[in-house]
Each structure stands twice: as structure tokens, then as C-alpha cells.
């Protein structure tokens, strides 16, 4: 188990050398801007009602993932870092949902 992890880590470290070009970063930025525009756009389409909520969740999760993967280099970096971040994130999300459930939100 541990050998595997370490091999994976070293593998991740090697990949770090191949960072994307500035053009990729700009393309990601444009995508982020477009998604934000879509979010605000559909926000003003009345009639969608509460159906808008899952759509907004998916769109903002996409933005989150883009920044984490490209700008924070998780896509190119060691998996251990992704595990640290995803672990904290998943637990935080679970906490939010558990507290909402226990407070009778749903």
C-alpha cells in the first residue's frame, strides 16, 4: 500500500515539470468568466423556480474544479495534495449537509 502511494507521489512530482502554458491559463479564465455570466444570466430568467438551484450548484462546482485543477495545479501535482484538499472539502460539505438536516432545513 505505502509503496504504491509513494510511487504515485513521485509520479506526481515528475508531472509537475509540465505546467501548462499561459494560453491555457487565459482560456481557463475565459471559461470562468463565461460560466459566471451564465450563472447570473439564468438567475434572471424567471420561471425556472427552484430548478435553478441544482443548475447553479453544478456550474459553480465546475468553476471550483477549474481553479483547483489548473490554477492550483492539482491536475499536474502530487495526488497526496489532492487528497488533503478533497478530504477537507468533503468533510466540510458533509458537515454543512448534516447540520442543515439536523436543523430541519430540508
Amino acid at each position: 500500500m505505502s509503496e504504491d502511494t509513494q510511487a504515485a507521489m513521485q509520479h506526481g512530482e515528475r508531472k509537475e515539470a509540465a505546467h501548462p502554458s499561459p494560453l491555457t491559463y487565459v482560456a481557463v479564465a475565459m471559461t470562468l468568466a463565461v460560466i459566471t455570466a451564465i450563472e447570473v444570466g439564468i438567475f434572471y430568467i424567471t420561471g425556472l423556480g427552484h430548478a435553478i438551484i441544482p443548475v447553479l450548484v453544478i456550474l459553480s462546482a465546475g468553476k471550483f474544479a477549474l481553479v483547483a485543477m489548473f490554477y492550483m495545479h492539482l491536475r499536474y501535482d502530487a495526488r497526496l495534495f489532492s487528497a488533503f484538499f478533497a478530504g477537507g472539502l468533503a468533510l466540510a460539505a458533509a458537515l454543512v449537509f448534516a447540520l442543515m438536516w439536523l436543523s430541519g432545513f430540508f
Binding site: 497526496l80 478530504g87 472539502l89 466540510a92 442543515m100
Partner: peptide, 21 residues
């Protein structure tokens, strides 16, 4: 740094949970 960011997720998670509750 990454361990800190994982930890900070819990910080903002708790604040967001409070907001939503």
C-alpha cells in the same frame, strides 16, 4: 500549505453551515 487549505475548508464549512442553518 495543502494541509492548511484542507483545514481551512472546515473553517469556511462551519461558517457556511451556520449561514444556511
Amino acid at each position: 500549505m495543502w494541509a492548511f487549505l484542507g483545514s481551512d475548508c472546515m473553517f469556511f464549512g462551519s461558517l457556511i453551515a451556520t449561514y444556511l442553518v
